[in-house]
Design a protein around this nucleic acid. Sequence first.
DNA 1: TAATTCACG
DNA 2: ACGTACGTGAATTAC
Length: 925
Amino acid sequence: MSDTKKIFLLDAYALIYRAYYAFIRAPRINSKKLNTSAIYGFTNALLEVLQKEKPSHLAVAFDPAGPTFRHKMYEPYKAQREATPEDIKLAVPYIKRLLEALNIPILEVSGYEADDVIGTISLKAERAGFEVFMMTPDKDYAQLVSDNIKMFKPRSRSGGVDVLGVAEVQEKFAVEKPEQVIDILALMGDASDNIPGCPGIGEKGARDIIKQYKNIPGIYEHINEFKGKRKENLIEFKEQVELSYTLATICREVPIEFNEDDLQVSEADSDKLMPLLEELEFKSLMARFGYESTPVVTAAPAQGDLFTQPQIEQAPVFASSLKTINDTAHAYYLVDNDQAYASLAADLSVQKAYCFDTETTGLDTATAELVGISFSWKKGEAYYVPFPDDRKQAEALVQRFKRVLEEEEIVKIGQNLKYDIQILKNYGVHVKGKIFDTMVAHHLALPGQRNNMDFMAEVHLGYSPIKLESLIGKKGKNQQTLREVDMALAKEYAAEDADITLQLKDFLMSKLKEAGLEELFYKTEMPLLLVLADMEATGVKLDVDELKNFAGKLHQRIEALEKEIFNMAGMEFNIASPKQVGEVLFDHMKIDAKAKKTKSGQYSTGEEVLTKLKGKHEIIDKILDFRGLRKLLNTYVEALPLLVNPKTGRIHTTYNQAMVVTGRLSSTNPNLQNIPIRDEDGREIRKAFIASNEDHLFLSADYSQVELRIMAHLSRDSHMVEAFAKGEDIHAATAAKIFKVDLSDVSDDMRRKAKTANFGIIYGISAFGLAERLNVSRTEAKELIDGYFENFPDVKAYMDKSIEVARDKGYVETIFGRRRNLPDINSRNGVVRGMAERNAINAPIQGTAADIIKMAMVNIQHELRKEGLQSKMILQVHDELNFDVLKSELERVKEIVKTGMENACKLSVPLAVEMGVGSNWHQAH
DNA sequence: TAATTCACG
DNA sequence: ACGTACGTGAATTAC
């Protein structure tokens, strides 16, 4: 434990409200009809802090009854706030009694709110050399943050916290100094406190303005740089903004003493505590306080002498006596000296298989550093090797395990191994040999179920592992890293992960076997995992200048559009806000008398709705254009350059192999599977995805109509199979059939309709959906569908069969056995059932396509490697693969790719691949 | 946090 | 009578 003084200051009401509403759907009521949600939630949060944060000092600040100095300044202050719920009023005395029993001081100063008290104490404590944590969900506190004063912000759902220090506040509010948070609040206002702010300025606007002008006075010094409505508002509401500034400022000069000793954490007074908990009927909390834990004693293994033995923890105030859920005997060893390293490596080298798990400082493989590696090859026994912070030393230590990690003959087991493999690659270790990834295995064996490790351990092993969050705090930009965590705790956590993962592997192996998924898993998914690791590491080069240039053009066009739109509307508004667009269009301009409203009572202003209104007013087109361009700018043009890795100069996406229910991959951070292509403006972005240098070219290869071909194969529909066999234009061929004309007489309109119908078929068609997309009557759509099924009767038969299979087995399968569970298939709710039926039709098709391209990827990568080619596979977009090809290798690579894709599997129709080459993605298409 | 919108296959 | 084509991820607004 560190010797720094650490004080926690809790904002009582803010936490009480939060606790109360957290249970609002299922309130905790005891036998005396007392709603104890707030008391329980608050107490729990308090105990969490005492246990996990181990503060040396702690106090709880309450808002006093009656008005504060702010009410004197501004009457409506907090006026519109609803009255405190009765349940909370009743809860407060209990909470105060509880605090008393815990010997925790209550701070309450008449005329000042809790935030003022905390603001004042935090300042005094900081001066007295404390590390201060203000525990509150209220973002206003961000203004108080300094080097030694941090916000400790509980997350609303599922526990965990965000710790906001200076860096986090700077990032979250886009400010240089935390004080500027006040300026932002003054502009945007705060509805819950009834701080008015400036009309027309919201969160984003306020941030942008303060970023540029630093503070409120700065705005008014440069007021002429503002234009239009915003300028008017800023001038008109100047006084209001200034008042808001004062209201939002937390007072740090509250007349209150700071007596360190009074706030020291001390033993609870159990004579007061126990009867109170009894009265409240908090059995679980009583158990937590009353339980005298005895440590699990485990036998040391033969070589145990070398390893640091499991430590029994100290017994501090409350935390020590908490009962653990799992009593499973286990032995986890710390491996932290030369002899132990050697011994562990030697033990590993004689295993057929072992499980390993890396612990790092983050989730981003580009920046995360190794903190430790855990190993396990026997249930209940695991080893944790902590790594030094120093990079050089860490690299040296990893060398000790390089040989066992690169040993071809040993199977490596892990959860999300792609990550561990990439981390190790950064440290010069190239994991080899067969792998078994429990996350991917689970996704295959039990599709649709959550596949994070904690969940799997609970459901399948009945075991509740230590949560990482409980050690490092929950997501937030600056949660702690495992490095800061006590090594004994880190060891328990990390070793347990390896132990559990190993146990999950046994369970999942038998599940895979039962479901007949071994081949898909071992021959496709596991090799694919390695392919994806390579693709992610390679990345794709981005031409940042090209995007900068494009951004400039877009900005100009957006501004021009904005002017036009405001002119047409006769008023200014936020065009990006669906709500405001709805109001302007339908209330102000009365463009459509009977506009649709969504469930939440808003006008619907989606693309569909607006497109239908196109003829009614020019403004519609302008709004659609505006939205399109802003989307482009915000989501791609300005976002992508920020994700270029400075070390490689490339974009490295992350593929998730265990996310999509149908078996497809998904891509995040950034998503490179939804880069625009459909319209001209968007397509420009693809020009920025370039080959790695002048010696390379961008090669793009995509399957032509792969899903329809799979439908043809699955249904064995002779007409469809024949059309594909002849290499006909499938949509035209479909049109010829359903419109009963010669292939040569198919008009563009007929082809378009047939194409839409073909897509509909894949999705599990409905007359309504088809009518909607074709913009024809439902009767016409129905006729089209009937015509389709008449001409392709086997397609209809296949669809019916799929649904029948689903009803019968509860799941459907791809050609290669990948399953999708459909529990809703027998639902009495027609809508829900209809959805499941369409899934029954679509999943085998989409899933088979996913299986096929995965097999192709594995084959292609294998071939590229085998021939020692330098060209690299860099992107996968569902039915498309992209490569960075060395010019001299182009012809050979094209051959490998084409064969690899076309021969990925044998169907009753040929698989066709189209390829293109250029200096960038755009050209290659 | 949920809903809305829109980018892709 | 109801709500309606399959599968995703990201940004934003508004609650």
